[in-house]
Amino acid sequence: MLFAIYYEMTPQHRDEVLKRFQKLGDAAPKGMKVIGNWLSVTLLEGWSIVEANDVADLGKLFQSWTDLNVNHVTPVFDEAGAHSFLSGHKK
């Protein structure tokens, strides 16, 4: 399953977040794949797309970040998945 993650950091935590990111990288647990990461030019917000089969893997990912970031996680379809879903739910 794909998840879109939007995260925000406050200016007072930005430097610590960036240090931790340089140290840990995306820190994806085994069984989870990071499709991509993007940061705003202000370095105060970012977006990620990850693939995970177990929601516990998402919990493991966020253990290293919830003290510094506000994280919003949303399950999403890719385009093929959306077409498949919509074709099966016609009225």
Results as ranks from 00 to 15, higher is better:
M1S: 15
M1C: 14
M1T: 09
M1P: 12
M1E: 07
L2H: 11
F3Y: 15
F3R: 04
I5Q: 02
I5S: 00
I5N: 00
Y7A: 12
Y7S: 12
E8H: 10
M9I: 10
T10V: 05
P11V: 04
P11W: 06
Q12P: 14
Q12R: 08
Q12I: 09
H13W: 07
H13T: 05
R14G: 00
R14W: 01
D15S: 06
V17W: 13
L18Y: 03
K19M: 14
F21H: 12
Q22M: 07
K23E: 14
L24G: 05
L24E: 02
L24V: 01
D26V: 14
D26E: 09
D26M: 11
D26S: 12
D26P: 12
A28R: 03
A28N: 06
P29H: 11
K30T: 09
K30V: 13
G31R: 02
G31H: 06
G31D: 03
M32A: 05
K33H: 13
V34I: 15
I35T: 02
I35M: 03
G36Y: 12
G36D: 13
G36N: 06
N37H: 11
N37W: 10
W38Q: 01
V41R: 11
T42D: 15
L43E: 14
L44I: 07
G46S: 06
G46C: 11
W47S: 03
S48F: 14
S48Q: 11
S48T: 14
I49T: 09
V50L: 11
V50C: 10
E51L: 02
N53V: 04
N53P: 02
D54R: 10
V55M: 09
A56T: 11
A56Q: 09
A56P: 02
D57R: 10
L58T: 03
G59C: 03
K60E: 03
L61N: 00
L61M: 13
L61I: 06
F62C: 05
F62P: 02
Q63H: 12
Q63A: 09
S64R: 02
W65Q: 03
T66Q: 00
T66C: 09
T66I: 09
D67Q: 07
D67W: 08
L68K: 02
N69R: 04
N69W: 11
N69M: 15
N69E: 10
N69F: 09
N71M: 10
N71Q: 00
H72F: 15
H72P: 00
H72D: 04
V73F: 08
V73K: 03
T74C: 13
P75K: 06
V76Y: 10
F77L: 04
F77S: 03
E79R: 12
E79A: 12
A80V: 11
G81C: 03
H83R: 15
H83M: 15
S84P: 04
F85L: 11
F85V: 05
F85K: 01
S87Y: 13
S87E: 06
S87W: 08
H89G: 01
H89N: 14
K90T: 12
K90H: 13
